[in-house]
Write a protein that binds this DNA or RNA. Structure first.
Length: 243
DNA sequence: GCGACAG
DNA sequence: ATCTTGTCGC
């Protein structure tokens, strides 16, 4: 048996063991899109869509902004269901991955994870700006971050990435199924009368019903639920400060 | 080959 | 996401 002159081994071939996905995958600079997708395929089996284990007492929201060449993530912690802000943490990193539809977690994930880890208390559930399983590989940023943090997460995106749906009613609370490849992967939810609907899908350790209930119970008069809304506002304030 | 395409 | 003032609507 003749062996190839070169034992070419791509980063995708030498996939890290689960515990090392974060260090070797997500934070690896120079990662290619193909390698990122390989990591997603290897990680997707770890995503668990199950009912939330217990009623949450602490809910967090995270989002990111991009001050030239950097990723600035903010994580906000709230009591639930009161929704009182009790902590806020940030993380700044060099931008190491471009925006590629379907690979958002490799661009924002690292910073978001760092910010969440800095919170003084561990959230019972985390809401992220993006998709959960409503994703081409069933592992959007919410699922990806949830697996890496081993924490319940909910994806709450402002627009659609994949799937078909019927426009939900115009009243707050109206919802319709988001289907993709014959599966219901999420809910198109009207969080406020007359506004554009939100695309809610389970990230990790939560199910579709939990996701919708949480987003709705966290929405206080605005389109976005408080955790994500406040994190987004803060993200922009901090970015402005930098420039 | 032609669209679609989280943030 | 980001570049950007005023402006239409509830």
């Amino acid at each position: 048996m003749t062996q190839p002159a070169k034992n070419k081994k791509t980063k995708a071939d030498s996939l890290p063991v689960p515990e090392e996905f974060f260090l070797q995958g997500v934070e690896a600079p120079g990662l290619t899109a193909a390698e990122a997708r390989a990591i997603q395929r290897a990680m997707k089996d770890r995503v668990r869509v199950v009912p939330l284990e217990a009623k949450p007492r602490l809910v967090a929201g995270a989002d990111a902004a991009f001050p030239d060449g950097e990723v600035l993530a903010v994580a906000c912690l709230f009591t639930y269901p009161e929704l009182e802000l009790v902590d806020m943490q940030t993380a700044v990193m060099k931008l190491a991955f471009p925006y590629v539809p379907g690979l958002l977690s490799f661009r924002e994930g690292p910073a978001v994870i760092r910010a969440v880890r800095k919170l003084k208390e561990r959230p019972d559930v985390l809401i992220l700006d993006g998709q959960g399983i409503a994703h081409p590989q069933m592992i959007g940023i919410a699922s990806h971050v949830g697996v890496l943090l081993d924490m319940p997460t909910v994806g709450c995106a402002k627009s659609r990435l994949v799937g078909e749906f019927l426009e939900p009613g115009r009243q707050r609370g109206s919802a319709s199924a988001l289907e993709y490849k014959g599966q219901v992967v999420g809910t198109v939810l009207r969080s406020k009368d007359g506004v554009r609907p939100l695309f809610v899908s389970p990230g990790h350790l939560v199910d579709i019903q939990d996701s919708v209930d949480l987003v709705l119970s966290c929405s206080k008069g605005f389109r976005l639920p408080e955790p994500t809304r406040v994190a987004d506002l803060e993200t922009k304030k901090l970015k402005k400060k930098k420039s």
